[in-house]
Every structure is written in structure tokens, then in C-alpha cells.
Amino acid sequence: MPSLKDLRNRIASVKATQKITKAMQMVAAAKLRRAQSAAEAARPYAQRMSSVLSNVAGGVATGSGPALLSGTGRSDVHLLVVCTGERGLCGAFNTSIVRLAREHIQSLMGQGKTVKIICVGKKGYDQLRRQYEKQIVELVDLRSVRNIGFANADGIGKKIISMFEAGEFDVCTLYFSRFRSVIAQIPTALQLVPAQIPTNDNAAAGPQASYEAEPGQEEILATLLPRNISVQVFTALLENMASFYGSQMSAMDNATRNAGDMIRKQTTLYNRSRQAMITKELIEIISGAEAL
């Protein structure tokens, strides 16, 4: 049976924790709104990009074209770009992305393929390091970045491309969490290289063969494909950011509620033992008086 002082201390400490989680929840909610609007503002560009890409790539015969589009023809070395958060206290957000990546790593290794990992975000690195220290080739730290700009994503994109050009991998997949709503974030795997071109759904609208290209289709594709990778990374980072804050918000909401429950329980216990103590003292006094 804890003493009254212990109980008082415990209640005070849970109350302090509750204040922190509540503050974190509100901060996450405010940041979520910003991250969400940033993610939404970036969506049109990505959409236009993919429709332009499908227009141009539609004219290229399958199997030909730049290597970024058609791949190297092998799938021996896989590069996994795992985007996670830089901070914890966000529920299962980091873990669920890492879990998805880990499942893929295991199945790839089971098939005897070589796996290389680029970690974006410290938390994913911490979790993957334990098992796959040797496979991790790079850690991209975005902790000092306040607002993710296109330049950040472009840096990662350029890194992927230079690795590809050096022949260091055959297939590249991006792992991140797609933001559906505050309570639903979906860990997603997206293949970057070879590029997955969305099929042109307005093919019925008319023949695309009359498309003219300046300077030439090859040159345009050669700049369009690397750009597309950067755009995909950028979208992924923004979606990840929004998911992170959404996840953190609901995690902190839960924590605040749990702290409230705990305080209520401890207060009941405190009052009960206080009353028991008073009753005991009264009995002692009364029985003492009777004995006289």
C-alpha cells in the first residue's frame, strides 16, 4: 500500500505529463494543418507531371527509351528509400513504415537479391540499423529542415539518379506513409525506377501521335524522368510530414486521455486511503477513550 505522499507525488507527475501531451497534441494539430495544405498544394504539380509523362512516354515503344524508363533489364540489386519521421512520440507511424520495408527486404533477400537502403529520417534508420546495418548506404537527415522545400527532395532525387547511373542498383522503391486522414495513414511502397508510367486514360480522346516535341522526345524524356523522381520524392516527403503530424496528434490525444484516466484512478485511491487512515485514527482514539 503506497503512502499518501507517494500517491500525491504520482498524481502530480501524471498531471504534468498530461499537460505536456496536451500541448504536443495542439502543436501537432497546428502543424498538421500546415503540412496538409502543403501536401495538397503539391498535388496538382505531381498530377500534371504524370499526365505529361504518360503523354510523352506513350509515344516511346516499350522496352526502348532511356534506362530510367525501361530499367536495366535486371532486378538483382534493389535500392529501398525508406522515408520516416525525425522524431518519435507519434504512435505506430515510424514502425508501420519500417515494418512494410522490412517485409520487403526479407522477401527480397530470400530470393537472393542484393538490398541497399537509403534512410530518410532518423527514426527509420534507428530501427533498421539493428538488423540491416550493412545494407544501409546513406542516412538523409532532415531534422534541421523546418519546411520541406523542393530543393530537399531534389537532393535525394539527384542522389538516386547518380547511383543509378553508376550502376549501383536496378530497381528503386520508395517507402512512405500516404496521408488519408488524421486517423488513417497508409504505409505505401512506390516503385521509382524503372518508372511506372500511368496508362493514358484519355487515349480514347484522340490519337497522340501528332505530338511534336522541342528539342526532341529523347531530350525531353531525359530531363523529364529525373524530374519525375524528384517530384515523387517531394510528394512522398510532404505526405509523410502530414501523416507524421496526424499520427502524432492522435497518439497524443490518446496519451492525454490515458493520463486523465490514470489521474482519476489515482485520486480515488488517494481519497480512499486518506479516509481509511482517518477512520483508523478515530477507532484508535475511541478505543483508547473506552479503555480508560
Binding site: N55, Y211, E212, A213, E214, P215, E219, I220, T223
Partner: peptide, 19 residues
């Protein structure tokens, strides 16, 4: 400002793609 020079786009321009 296209890569091959300035061009003015009006309605019903032929489909073209330029850097």
C-alpha cells in the same frame, strides 16, 4: 520562352511539348 525560342500559344495550337 521555349528552348528553341519564344513562342506565342493561341487557341487550338497544335499539340507540342517543349522544354
Amino acid at each position: 520562352p521555349g528552348s528553341e525560342g519564344q513562342m506565342t500559344i493561341l487557341k487550338d495550337h497544335a499539340p507540342v511539348m517543349t522544354m
